[in-house]
Design a protein around this nucleic acid. Structure first.
Lengths: 203, 203
DNA sequence: AGCACTGTAGTCAAATTTGGCTATTACGCT
DNA sequence: AGCGTAATAGCCAAATTTGACTACAGTGCT
């Protein structure tokens, strides 16, 4: 829960503020926090004693606005959580990798086309990121580490793009998907390209 | 749901088989499927008419073993889902990036140390991946695209590692975190390194 | 034969996440 | 002044995910 971090950083705040800040970072992309989660998180953190409610204002007949701030215990917990993320390496799930593992279920030409398309999408992303990086907005109005995050995305994107192109070429070159050791040997009957495999337990 | 894909690929199967296969791919890492999710997913897919139960065997007094296979509708849906992932680019959430956005909350020396540590962890990962790639196991016993997935991880890991080292250096060099335009100007009072910010709404 | 372990198969309650919904005020336009 | 739209603030039911748990059958060891 990095909601806690945000509250710590903006306290005292109410839910809607947090939500706006998250959206403005388009953090629903790289954290997993959709608007709806926020209020739940705030309440849970309060129950756990990491946050404290400061006040509950009411303007007119609108929903009450609850303001939160971080307790000493919350402060401590945040440090712990933060360090956990900084010092640990944790692979995060990637749906494309999952999909790629089903490569043999795609016709060769479509697979190659999709990879090239992907490379193009990534290239477009790279360009707009480059533009942002050079823009006054990021260079002079934002803390420098925001730019550094862009650089990370850039580096990853370039790695991905290169890979897509390399793999597209290999697929087009028509190499067999079968394990090198067993060109047309046992058990791989279901591994034709594109066709629905009718196979057994492989491995 | 790429459970569907697996069932399609191994049909007819029962839940436990799917679970074993997923664990053997350590897919809990790069897909988001913990053992518990599987049975729920199977039932849901059956309700939606994408799967069909083939049989319910019972060996002794053990839990009944339900076997599934894919229906025509499931076949179709799988194609759709698969294509969605192949043709679309979707950023996936990364907890490290989230944590990195709180850089100013970390003491400089710790931040740099953590990044170097991270680089080392990644390097270790890279080496073991290289070893796998060269191993007979992957080279000759697995479909070639498994190796390609390793290459993707490798490329990303290398990008990450390089970035970590570059950023560590910059942090050590003592550059200010403040936006370049406003060395010690308005509103950034809470942006000292390490200290808990007592700031306002930034931006 | 008795016992501990591991593997098989799946269940379940609790935690989390989602994303659409309500209801009010402010603002801009004609 | 009237009206439509956007912003404010938060709620909630449903879907999903998690991780721990049950219960039985082989297997090996002493």
């Amino acid at each position: 829960m990095m909601i806690l971090g945000l509250v710590r950083w903006m306290q005292p705040v109410h839910g809607y503020d947090v939500r706006r800040e998250l959206l403005s970072w388009s953090a629903d992309k790289w954290a997993n926090v959709q608007p709806g989660s926020i209020y739940h998180a705030l309440r849970k953190l309060t129950d756990e004693g990491l946050l404290r409610t400061v006040s509950v204002e009411q303007v007119g007949a609108r929903p009450a606005r609850t303001t939160y701030e971080v307790t000493a215990k919350g402060e401590e917990e945040f440090e712990t959580l933060l360090r956990a993320q900084w010092w640990q390496l944790n692979e995060t799930p990637d749906p494309f990798v999952a999909a790629f593992s089903f490569l043999p279920a795609m016709p060769r030409d479509e697979a190659a086309a999709a990879l090239r398309n992907r490379a193009n999408l990534i290239r477009a992303g790279i360009e707009s990121m480059r533009a942002s990086l050079d823009s006054d907005w990021v260079r002079n109005r934002k803390p420098v580490h925001v730019g550094w995050m862009f650089e990370l995305w850039l580096a990853r994107a370039e790695a991905d793009m290169g890979w897509c192109l390399r793999i597209a070429e290999r697929i087009e070159s028509g190499v067999s998907y079968l394990p090198a050791g067993m060109e047309r040997a046992e058990g791989w009957s279901g591994w034709q390209d594109g066709g629905p495999p009718c196979g057994e337990d492989a491995d």
